[in-house]
Design a binder for these strands. Structure first.
Lengths: 113, 113
DNA sequence: TTGACATACAACCGATCGGTTGTATGTTGG
DNA sequence: CCAACATACAACCGATCGGTTGTATGTCAA
């Protein structure tokens, strides 16, 4: 819940809030792809795709390694899991509310209060 | 993977890509809050908070019910889980890659190919 | 009834977003 | 060496974002 954590959450959710970037994630989680290979899949300029890849990289959702003149991108499943864990945190808050409600009901129906 | 699904994913991730909205989600998952009560918690105008609530509502992450002159917002944990399941889908793609790699290794090391 | 409160929404503004084109820098193969 | 390829990045543009103020509407309480 620190400032840094919030910045990271901002970057992660923002990066995933675009269908082209989500599609890129699917591809790079399935296997390594060069930026050019990815760019060929979409009806937009190379530069646009390169910027999408850069957004995902800055968010930590993918990493690149150089291979000759190509940059091979691969998805980071740990980063994906870290987003999932943020949602689990949210769900845990909800569980806390349910637990409180359950306790309230239990204490109301207990013979001795 | 339909257009509608992608639109929903866009809306969900976008809604969560703002720290004020994530904070609102924490509060409304913990219990019902009126828009005014929520607005009082943040250093911004009532209208700004009301718009944040509207973004979350349109994404389906919270619902409102009228109680007198107040609108009580409550978080929808199912919507939160639906986001989590999108991430599970991504992770499954990655698992598929790992499985393919494992199979490759296994067939390489098998005595009979 | 009326005044205060709760909400919604429109109009506006600077900043960021997602796209473009153009240019610069590496890298490789012949 | 050099021509083609792969990448990066800057500058620009229209659209959307996150905020503001102002206004309209509905509801409650005295």
């Amino acid at each position: 819940m620190t400032e840094t954590d919030e910045n990271r959450a901002d970057a992660l959710f923002h990066a995933l809030a675009d269908r082209t970037r989500r599609d890129i994630m699917r591809r790079v989680l399935a296997g390594e792809h060069s930026v050019s290979t990815l760019a060929a899949k979409y009806d937009m300029s190379f530069a646009a795709v390169q910027k999408h890849v850069a957004v995902l990289e800055k968010a930590g959702l993918l990493t690149k390694r150089r291979s000759g003149r190509e940059q091979l991108a691969r998805g980071d499943v740990e980063a994906v899991r870290s987003v999932a864990s943020l949602l689990v945190d949210l769900e845990q808050i909800w569980r806390g509310r349910i637990a409180r409600i359950d306790n309230l009901i239990a204490s109301d129906t207990e013979p001795e209060g």
